[in-house]
């Protein structure tokens, strides 16, 4: 067997055990558990967890996920929700373990518009690069520690101050939009 500096956990924890552990270590987070059913007998096939966490607890939450398994990052979704920008980080735990044991983990953070900064996870999970750059240019969140600052999806001559997914004055002006329908 190769000596591997990085690997996935092969023996998964149950979703109950993961919830208990996270709630014990991070008393102020809220976790919603969703059983995803399917198949002929409509039984539970896998579980998704939706975790709401304060911005100040975000890094600690990610550290706790790392103690469970290397979190496989899928994508970040987000929206402008008024005074805050919502960021959802979508991960998998126990991706390489047993049948039906992969745990979907979405970590949801509200970033106040008065301080649109988040710590970058790029040094821990290099695969997050495109998503952090995407959220930076689409919603205006700065990721501290992310080395690449150039546009990834917007054209090079785009006005840096216009954030297309924002719903406030920083978003798209109606006359900037061609009819998309």
């Amino acid at each position: 067997m190769m000596n591997r500096s990085i690997d996935y956990v092969k023996e998964p924890l149950s979703s109950e055990a993961v919830i208990a552990r996270l709630e014990e270590r991070l008393p102020d987070i809220r976790i919603q558990r969703r059983d995803r059913v399917g198949g002929r007998d409509n039984s539970v096939q896998y579980v998704d967890l939706w975790i709401q966490v304060e911005k100040g607890r975000f890094l600690q939450t990610i550290e706790e996920l790392f103690r469970l398994d290397f979190p496989h990052f899928h994508v970040m979704s987000g929206d402008d929700v008024g005074d805050d920008v919502l960021l959802n980080y979508h991960f998998s735990l126990f991706r390489v373990s047993e049948h039906g044991k992969r745990l979907g983990v979405s970590v949801c953070v509200l970033v106040p518009k008065s301080d649109l900064h988040m710590p970058s996870l790029f040094d821990r999970i290099p695969g997050i690069e495109y998503s952090e750059r995407e959220m930076r240019e689409m919603l205006g969140v700065e990721f501290e520690g992310l080395p690449m600052k150039g546009f990834i999806f917007l054209p090079e001559n785009w006005d840096e101050n216009v954030k297309p997914w924002r719903r406030d004055k920083d978003g798209l002006n109606p006359d900037m939009m061609r009819d998309l329908s």
């Binding site: 996935y8 995803r36 399917g38 198949g39 002929r40 039984s43 096939q45 896998y46 496989h72 998998s92 126990f94 991706r95 390489v96 373990s97 047993e98 049948h99 039906g100 044991k101 992969r102 979907g104």
Partner: peptide, 17 residues
């Protein structure tokens, strides 16, 4: 060599069967 496949690790639709 990564043994990942959502049809196995997180079965959706009929894959659990």
């Amino acid at each position: 060599g990564v043994r990942c496949d959502l049809r196995w690790s997180a079965p959706y639709e009929a894959y659990g069967d």
